[in-house]
């Protein structure tokens, strides 16, 4: 059963008239992970922000986005806002910039959870602490009293995952969550994503240009180039029998890179996944 069904999504820049995504349709099956890969500027992030209806003012979109049968395109801004966080949760690329730098982390977490649940202060702390411990963040209460700049990018990324765990959304959209991290943190964060799926059984859209990570985590893959979906299929199929030239190019350049990387790192890191 499809939890998300995107039909004829068109995205364009209203101020210049330039089309970013001409006509895109895809489905996300309940409980699976769909990866969207492609080079920078291929329209991956814009597509995902369209699902959340969070593109910047001048960017326009049309088409149907059916979430559990409900058309998100027709909802009022108010109704859409209630879906964000509670039903559709986003995890951003750069943890260092995802939180208000002038607030303690706990402030953002509490604000968000207060928006969707009516928990007491104690219940909030309990839920959040449990979620943070489950992504290997030690002494959560202490962390919640820290400012974003006092934590590393990988830790902040895991705080975002922890918030997603506490929110228990139906779909998690992760926009290049590992790109800004060093290899060690990347490894840990990917582990958490895999666990997140196992524990919560939620559906996930995972945007990345790191094919190593995609191969590890995704069930299905969409390959995007210049705003169009050039290839789609199961992860297995994409990696072994890609039909489109661009996909083959991506996979082969990935292989070349990981071999070089494996040589440099002595074969320990993510490269051989």
């Amino acid at each position: 059963m499809n939890i998300l069904d995107v039909k004829n999504l068109k995205i364009w820049d209203g101020s210049t008239g330039r089309t970013i995504v001409p006509d895109s349709s895809f489905q996300l099956k309940q409980g699976t992970c769909l990866a969207i890969v492609g080079e920078s500027g291929s329209g991956k992030s814009v597509t995902c922000r369209s699902i959340m209806r969070l593109n910047k003012g001048s960017i326009c979109q049309s088409g149907d986005i059916l979430f559990q049968g409900e058309n998100l395109s027709l909802l009022s801004e108010q109704e859409m806002r209630r879906k964000r966080g509670k039903n559709l949760c986003m995890i951003l690329q750069n943890g260092m910039r995802a939180f208000d730098p002038s607030c303690k982390l706990g402030v953002h977490l509490k604000e968000t959870l207060d928006q969707h649940f009516s928990w007491s202060k104690q219940a909030f702390t309990d839920h959040m602490a449990k979620a943070m411990e489950s992504v290997m963040l030690r002494s959560p209460v202490e962390l919640m009293n820290k400012y974003p700049h006092q934590l590393s990018g990988g830790m902040l990324q895991r705080v975002m995952i922890a918030l997603a765990i506490a929110l228990e959304p139906d779909i998690i959209i992760a926009d290049e969550p590992t790109t800004a991290l060093d290899t060690i943190s990347q490894f840990e964060v990917v582990e958490q994503f895999i666990r997140l799926r196992e524990v919560m059984g939620c559906s996930m859209i995972f945007i990345s240009h790191d094919l190593g990570v995609v191969r590890k985590i995704a069930d299905d893959v969409l390959v995007m180039k210049d705003g169009e979906i050039v290839e789609r299929g199961t992860t297995q199929a994409i990696f072994t029998e890609a039909r489109h030239e661009y996909t083959r190019y991506l996979v082969s350049s990935k292989l070349a890179l990981s071999q070089h990387f494996a040589n440099v790192m002595g074969g320990i890191a993510l490269a051989d996944r």
């Binding site: 922000r49 986003m90 910039r97």
Partner: peptide, 20 residues
């Protein structure tokens, strides 16, 4: 800034986001 996008993605109302 990204924190504005993330705040919105978390479902925070515009009033709170403007405050941040």
């Amino acid at each position: 800034e990204d924190y504005v996008l993330y705040g919105r993605a978390c479902g925070l109302p515009e009033k709170k986001i403007t405050k941040h």
